[in-house]
Amino acid sequence: MEFVDYLQAVTDGVMQGAYYALIGIGFTLIFGVMNKINLAYAAAAFGGAYASLGIAALIGSGDDFGLPPLLMFLASAVAAGLFAWIVYTICFRFTPDHYELATLMATVGAFFLIEEIAVHATDGEPMDFPEVLQGIIEDPMIEFSDAFAIRGDLLTIFLLALIAMAVLLLLLYRTKLGLATRAVAQQRTAAQLCGISVDRTNASTFIIAGVLGGLAGAMIGAAVGVLSPLLFVPLTVKGLIVTVIGGLGSIPGAIVAGLLVGGLENVFLALRGITERDMYVMLLLFLFLAFRPQGLFGKKVLRD
């Protein structure tokens, strides 16, 4: 392989890293306010993408998707926000605060439940998902040379993801809701004393994270072109790895780590082949844990 091939691999990977970043942000947001893990997060995100397919099928007929791709992204985001709220209610709301194992296990249960509902609705078959620019430009490719080209649809997805991230940051740093969220994340008791409803803040954080997840789910569907329950576990794992490398609770960290993992993963693939690619991703994580356990931008956690 020549240099340009590596450049190509990194470019493709970084653009696809955008959805690792979105999923990583979701994990990190929830961890930030609740100090707990939501293992059903990626599953709920794909649940949104499946729901958007369902809605499109209701509206459309035959071969056509009933909705233009961008509306499907929106439908997926709304549905996933709703699912995230349901996951919050059945897994977090009533399980004990101080015993995180119960919550962890409940989210595993929710993962199984969402996965199985998707399987039952589709018989587990791969579902055709429209490309983001379908109907506008067919299979756009921006070709710079024979050896280097950028997928137009992936670039669109990448830009959409960046916009979503910017909106999220605005929401967190420029609105009251964001202030409340950050307050609960920093000092829950103090926030409560200031009259912030922790429960409502938690629920809204889940919904925000869910909406981002729904976008990511639809983006993955659009980037691959197919949705399958096979995606739930690997995207959960990659999302978690991104969260840790970025630093727990750090949104900029999750963004950078998502792009980093996406890009490096493709380099590992080019260098070592598919069977070893993920082993090197794991090694990268181990390196971070050994030498920079607080992640890229995380603060040192003394006690939790």
């Binding site: 091939d5 990977g13 993955i220 691959v224 690997p234 598919i274 069977t275």
Partner: peptide, 15 residues
């Protein structure tokens, strides 16, 4: 070229 059962990215292989 090789890929895995649940891969989402085939750009390198298809190239």
């Amino acid at each position: 070229v090789k890929w895995l059962l649940n891969d989402t990215n085939f750009t390198t292989q298809v190239r």
